[in-house]
């Protein structure tokens, strides 16, 4: 009950921000919400199931490219978004079938390599994909349910609705029986196997759900901000969701949002000091693994807020 109130309160606060924020922060918050959807996907794989992937940029960028190329070829935004969703799931299924034969460090390297190969392939077929420069999506096509997504207000609304749906879906998932079996894989895979859970299929399902979130996030990013490109498939876009989840708290429902929001604020605040976010990302990553491996909400949960979902 407390958890439900908390989730709804967070969504209500985000909705209120839609009316209160100045235009610059408006765009930034919309971006944060879409990246938080991506991070929620990452959280399902890493935070709840314990699968530390370094290749989620693949699913994000696959969703983005599928959606963007479809729209370039004349498909409407709605169906194109669904294509992006599917692309995220299909790539996660394909890479998961292979990568899940490994574990631990090998799993990290294999996922990294798959994402790298995908990114290189996007560059190699640059004539079709637009390569590193990418391509803009025509403003006229960026309409959803009659809303003009080139405008700040509708854009924020769509980002918020998407985030709200994914957040509640994540909460439903992790408090379900299936969600419990995912957490069980993270906590003790051998015990789970001896309770009759198939580790391979359970983890594969987690990866596919994770990939679906990443795919829809990538597609939405393209539609909302009007640009797609292979630069969203670089290793950095695999690291970012990991960073958000680690910062906010892996295995907490609201950690991905908190991490994405805080990082955006940190990088924005530090932009006076450095012209590149690299150092901020680097310092935060190191600080987290050394001083706070559970992240913010994870530490709060450990320190007494046990009910935190």
């Amino acid at each position: 009950m407390k958890a439900l109130v908390l989730h709804l309160a967070v969504l209500a606060a985000l909705a209120a921000m839609g009316f209160l924020l100045p235009p610059y922060h408006h765009g930034m918050m919309a971006r944060v919400l879409v990246m938080a959807v991506f991070a929620i996907g990452y959280n399902i794989a890493f935070g709840y199931t314990g699968l530390l992937s370094l290749g989620h940029a693949l699913h994000f960028c696959a969703g983005m490219m599928a959606c963007g190329i479809a729209m370039r070829e004349g498909v409407a935004a709605g169906p194109a978004l669904l294509l992006g969703l599917a692309a995220g799931g299909v790539t996660a299924l394909a890479t998961g079938l292979l990568a899940l034969r490994t574990a631990g460090v090998s799993f990290m390297i294999v996922t990294l390599m798959f994402a790298q190969a995908f990114h290189l392939a996007l560059l190699y077929y640059g004539g079709f994909t637009g390569g590193d420069e990418g391509f803009p999506l025509p403003g006229a096509a960026r309409r959803l349910f009659g809303l003009d997504l080139t405008q700040a207000g509708p854009r924020y609304a769509v980002a918020l609705v998407l985030f709200g749906l994914v957040l509640l879906a994540q909460w439903g998932l992790v408090s379900s029986r299936f969600g419990r079996s995912l957490i069980a894989m993270r906590e003790n895979e051998e015990r789970s196997r001896m309770l009759g859970y198939n580790p391979f299929t359970t983890k594969l399902a987690a990866l596919v759900i994770s990939g679906l979130c990443a795919g829809i996030a990538g597609a939405a990013y393209g539609v909302l901000f009007g640009y797609v490109g292979a630069s969203f498939g670089t290793t950095q876009y695999s690291i970012l969701p990991m960073l958000y989840v680690l910062l906010g708290g892996a295995g907490t429902t609201l950690g991905p949002l908190l991490g994405a929001g805080l990082m955006a604020w940190l990088i924005d605040a530090a932009s006076g000091l450095t012209d590149s976010p690299l150092a901020v990302i680097g310092v935060t990553l190191i600080g987290l693994v050394v001083f706070a491996p559970r992240g913010i909400l994870g530490t709060l949960r450990q320190r007494g807020l046990k009910w935190l979902p």
Partner: peptide, 17 residues
């Protein structure tokens, strides 16, 4: 092993910067 990978990713960003 896993923490080390995350930390050295952070380090690589720092060194690049």
């Amino acid at each position: 092993p896993e923490s080390t990978i995350v930390a050295t990713i952070g380090l690589s960003y720092l060194l690049q910067q």
